[in-house]
Amino acid sequence: MTAAPAAPNSKAPATGARIIAITSGKGGVGKTFVSANLAAALTRHGLKVLVLDADLGLANLDVVLNLHPKVTLHDVFTGRSSLDDAVIEAPGGFSVLLAGSGMVEYSRLTPEVRNEFINVLQTLAPRYDVVLLDTGAGISDVVLFSVSLASEVLIVATPEPTSLTDAYAAIKVLATQQKRQHVRMVVNQAARPGDGRAITSQLQQVLDRFVTTESGRPMRLLHMGDIPADNAVREAVMRRQLLLLNTPGCPAALAVAQLANKIQSTLLA
Rank of each mutant, 00 (worst) to 15 (best):
P13F: 15
E152M: 11
L61G: 04
P193R: 10
K11C: 11
G30Y: 01
G196F: 00
P228V: 00
V71H: 00
I20N: 02
P193W: 07
L42G: 00
L154A: 04
T78Y: 13
A255M: 01
Q258I: 08
A90W: 00
V64C: 05
I227S: 01
A125S: 15
Q181E: 14
D134E: 06
L61Q: 05
L243K: 03
V153S: 05
L259F: 02
V34K: 02
R234D: 11
A54L: 11
N37Y: 03
N246K: 13
M224F: 08
T162H: 13
L56Y: 07
P193V: 10
G100D: 10
T72N: 04
T78Q: 15
N9W: 08
T162C: 13
T247A: 14
L121P: 02
F94T: 00
T266L: 15
I118D: 05
A229E: 05
T266M: 13
L154I: 09
N246V: 10
I263H: 02
V211Y: 09
S101I: 13
A255K: 00
A269F: 11
R209F: 15
A137G: 14
L97M: 11
S95T: 04
K70A: 14
K48P: 01
Y168M: 11
A36C: 15
V186W: 00
I199G: 02
P126Y: 12
E112A: 15
A232P: 08
L61M: 12
K70P: 06
Q204E: 04
A170S: 15
Q205C: 11
D141I: 12
E235Q: 14
N115Q: 14
N9I: 08
L121M: 09
V71L: 05
T32I: 07
A90K: 02
V142F: 14
V187M: 04
L98M: 08
A229R: 03
G225C: 10
R239H: 12
L97W: 03
R192T: 08
V49A: 02
V147Q: 03
V29N: 02
V34E: 03
R114K: 12
A191I: 07
I88D: 04
I155C: 05
G196T: 01
V63N: 09
Y168W: 14
T23Y: 04
K70F: 09
N60H: 10
G100A: 15
V64G: 01
P218M: 06
G79P: 13
V51H: 03
N37L: 05
L245T: 09
E89Q: 08
P13H: 14
V206W: 09
R114M: 09
A167M: 08
